[in-house]
Design a protein around this nucleic acid. Structure first.
Length: 455
RNA sequence: GCCGCGGUAGCCUAGCCUGGUAGGGCGCCGGCCUGCUAAGCCGGUGGGCGUGGUCCCUCAGGGGUUCAAAUCCCCUCCGCGGCGCCA
């Protein structure tokens, strides 16, 4: 949420950013807010004067009653004033509601480095890492997607897409999951279960080493938390509601971690607060019909380790670079080739002031696909959730900045591993860094072994 | 789920029965005093607005009664204790 003072004092800054975002139809909101705010302040002044009069009369009544004097005339005046106040309060409340409606629906102000673009095709790749394995049939598209800036090794055989690998390894049962729960659900099975847990522990250990506090948060949160962390559009598209309760299934542990310090004034010496959330994530994926319908890339439920940072405003941009660097470090140790993209205005969403994605090279699909998203939400969430800090108790509290980034979302990391680490025979050679967590170094096709999870 | 007791400023607490407009302490900031420190004393310490005004709002949140509500009544949320149920 934006500060109404920013709109009041620098409306052109806000307008310019709406234009940058291509939110032209919201420009007239700014004019309306300014007009409503003016009326609100005028009414507030009137109400305050009337309240002052009422308060003085009430005190006088008390005094006279004590002295045993008559208060009839004061009662009449007081009732009169009460009526006026009531009418004005009704009016000001309606104005307030309208202002709030707009304020709660305006996007965050973008960072100057955010590129302008209409949708995800205009995100800007800013760096590349690793040596991609590229089937000769994908060479052209790979060179285009990597801008010729990435190392690669040519494969004469075509790697399988993860969906086929799942079948070969008996790593998931998608048909039965569809029977039981519908599409975009899965029974994860055999070695992939161990791999899922290994990835989580690997990511968690790394973050703990970097000073993050591990947290298993509540998997359901109240509405005020979701309203605080996300834009209203996301409610219908991504968030599951629990029927008959004021509870929502979390689409990411970012949400309960952001709500954790709602309505608090933090001690400046505690900042930055670093949390490593670990939880399942539930997403409706409405509006994605037809996309990634097979496999486990886009699903209603997955596990994720998340970085969440509460920082001082002046340090948040530095922390944004650090959390993306942490995520990159994880993918480097996993030896998964990737590129980092700077998300453009059209793909940014309302919450973040700037966002980086890590897109892993998927050797089977011949594409870079999103595996990590790292956002600086500046004070947009903190203002909605009322999360402030101060260094000395006499100081005026300031809003913190909140940042979040995927460390590892297991479903997508598994897809990257299955597509990039397979041999021509369909054996998946796991990255070394996971061996101590899995207890096995490779996953054989079901036809090549007697039982699961052998050394 | 049921019963009881609670929720007051960054923290601790008084006030609630008996309605009269939130008092004290800790911490922090500033000032006075002092060779320096401590102690002591004075002022400040949530939000708002035309921001210095003997202004308004704020006692978990919402509603009601009243000229007037922290205080009385109702609802919701949270915490603690007990009982019940349960992995």
């Amino acid at each position: 949420m934006l500060d109404i003072k920013l709109i009041r004092e620098n409306p052109d800054t806000v307008r310019a950013d709406l234009i940058k975002r291509g939110e032209i139809e919201k420009l007239k909101w700014i004019d309306e807010i300014l007009e409503l705010d003016k009326r609100w302040r005028e009414n507030l002044k009137k109400i305050n004067t009337l309240r002052r009069d009422r308060n003085r009369i009430a005190v006088e009544i008390g005094r006279r009653k004590k002295a045993g004097k008559d208060v009839g005339d004061l009662l009449t005046r007081s009732r009169e004033i009460a009526g006026q106040i009531e009418a004005l309060e009704k009016e000001i409340e309606e104005i307030r509601k309208k202002i709030d409606y707009y304020l709660w629906r305006l996007p965050n102000i973008t960072h100057e480095s955010v590129p302008i673009g209409k949708d995800d095709t205009e995100n800007v790749p800013i760096r590349f890492w690793g040596k991609a394995r590229v089937w000769e049939g994908f060479l052209e598209t790979f060179r285009e997607q990597s801008l010729g800036k990435m190392d690669y090794e040519v494969l004469s055989w075509r790697p399988k897409i993860h969906v086929d690998m799942l079948e070969l390894l008996k790593g998931a049962d998608l048909e039965r999951a569809a029977k039981v729960s519908g599409s975009r659900f899965y029974y994860l099975m055999n070695e992939l279960v161990i791999l899922d847990l290994a990835l989580l522990r690997f990511a968690l250990d790394k973050l703990v080493e970097k000073g993050f506090t591990p947290v298993v948060p509540p998997y359901m949160v109240r509405r005020f938390v979701e309203e605080g962390v996300t834009s209203f559009g996301d409610f219908e598209d991504v968030i599951y509601k629990v029927e008959g309760e004021d509870l929502y299934l979390i689409p990411t542990s970012e949400h309960p971690l952001a709500g954790m310090h709602a309505n608090e004034i933090l001690d400046g010496s505690e900042l930055p607060l670093l949390y490593a959330g670990i939880s399942p994530c539930f997403r409706k994926e409405a509006g994605t019909a037809g996309k990634d319908t097979k496999g486990i890339f886009r699903v209603h439920q997955f596990h994720k380790v998340e970085q969440f940072v509460y920082s001082r405003p002046e340090e948040s941009w530095e922390w944004h670079e650090r959390i993306i660097a942490n995520a990159e470090e994880l993918f480097q140790e996993l030896e998964i080739p990737y590129r980092v993209v700077n998300i453009c205005t059209g793909d940014l969403g309302y919450v973040a002031a700037k966002k980086y994605d890590i897109e892993a090279w998927m050797a089977g699909q011949g594409k870079f696909r999103e595996v990590v998203s790292a956002s600086n939400c500046t004070e947009w969430q903190a203002r909605r959730l009322n999360i402030r800090f101060r260094d000395k108790t006499h100081e005026k509290p300031r809003f913190v900045h909140t940042l979040n980034s995927t460390a590892i979302a297991t479903s997508r990391a598994i897809v990257a591993i299955l597509e990039n680490f397979q041999t021509e025979e369909g054996v998946v050679k796991l990255p070394k860094v996971l061996w101590k967590y899995t207890g096995f170094k490779e996953i054989l096709p079901a036809s090549m072994k007697e039982k699961c999870c052998q050394e």
